[in-house]
Simulated assay, not measured.
Amino acid sequence: MTISLSKGQRIDLTKTNPGLTKVIVGLGWDTNKYNGGSDFDLDASAFMLYQDGKAKGVDDFVFYNNPKTPNGSVVHTGDNRTGEGDGDDEQIIMDFSLVPANVERVGITVTIHDAQARSQNFGQVSNAFVRIVDESNGREVLRYDLGEDFSVETAVVICELYRQGSDWKFQAIGSGFSGGLAALCKNYGLDAN
């Protein structure tokens, strides 16, 4: 049975799902019936975060141009440039057993590519969700539907997976940013230039 979460909720992943070590973070969205002349190219990313809540360098930032961490603990499966079709539009695979011990959180985000140039924002995006799937058997563990809370934002922190002792937990965040990827990178301690 899938658990549906609301913004701000936290839930245990590994304690209530013994043996859960590798998950698929599936992200999906639709665009409203708006035609600005360009496809909506939304991009999922993962930020490996340390005790101070910041990433330390480019190896801690996983996205379509840097598709995996050096040890393979987090892997981006590929860029969907249109968001067409049902189900997950992009996926990030995370192996809890490989995440370095000094990484305390993994921030999962979505940005709109070239949002400013294309006059696009999350007010034009609907049905956005994240789901956690047990990679070993394909079972959906939880789902967080973002709702329609956004207007001018061009980047969203969807959720964070975080370590508490030996267990991993999930927090539904749904926090929007203006300024796209550069704003997210700055939030997480990286220089986007």
Rank of each mutant, 00 (worst) to 15 (best):
D134Y: 07
N102T: 01
V99Q: 13
Y50L: 05
V103G: 01
V74W: 00
D39Q: 14
A55P: 11
A128C: 03
K56N: 05
N66T: 10
Q91F: 13
G85H: 09
K68I: 15
P100W: 01
S73Y: 10
S45K: 01
P67R: 02
G72V: 01
N66H: 10
Y64W: 12
V62L: 01
A55W: 08
N65M: 07
G78A: 00
P100A: 05
Q51C: 06
Q91G: 03
A55Q: 11
H113Q: 10
S97C: 08
S38G: 12
R139Q: 10
V130Y: 11
N65P: 00
Q91C: 10
T77H: 04
N71K: 09
S73N: 05
D134Q: 04
G78K: 03
N66S: 11
M48C: 10
V130A: 04
V152E: 15
D52N: 08
V74T: 13
V141H: 04
A55Y: 02
Y144L: 09
M48P: 00
V58Q: 14
I132N: 09
V157E: 08
I112C: 11
F129E: 06
N121I: 14
N66G: 10
E140T: 15
V152I: 10
R105E: 03
R139I: 10
P67G: 05
G138L: 12
G123L: 08
N66V: 08
F63I: 05
N127S: 13
N71V: 00
K54E: 12
S151I: 02
L98H: 05
Q124F: 02
D52M: 01
I132M: 05
K56S: 09
S126P: 09
L42W: 09
E153H: 12
Y50M: 02
K68T: 10
Q116L: 13
F63H: 11
A128E: 12
D52A: 03
G53C: 03
D149P: 06
Y50P: 00
I93F: 02
K56G: 08
V106W: 15
G107K: 07
F40G: 07
V74L: 04
G78R: 02
H76C: 09
Q51L: 12
I132R: 06
I93D: 01
V106A: 14
V110E: 14
N80F: 03
T154V: 12
T154D: 00
F122Q: 05
A128H: 08
K68D: 12
A44N: 04
T109W: 07
V141Y: 06
V157L: 11
V110W: 08
N121E: 05
I112S: 04
V156R: 00
F63S: 09
M94K: 14
V130T: 11
R139N: 03
E140K: 14
S119R: 06
V58E: 15
D145L: 13
I112F: 13
G57M: 03
V125Y: 04
Y144Q: 11
G78F: 04
D43S: 05
T154R: 15
N102S: 12
D88C: 05
A55I: 13
Q120G: 04
V157Y: 07
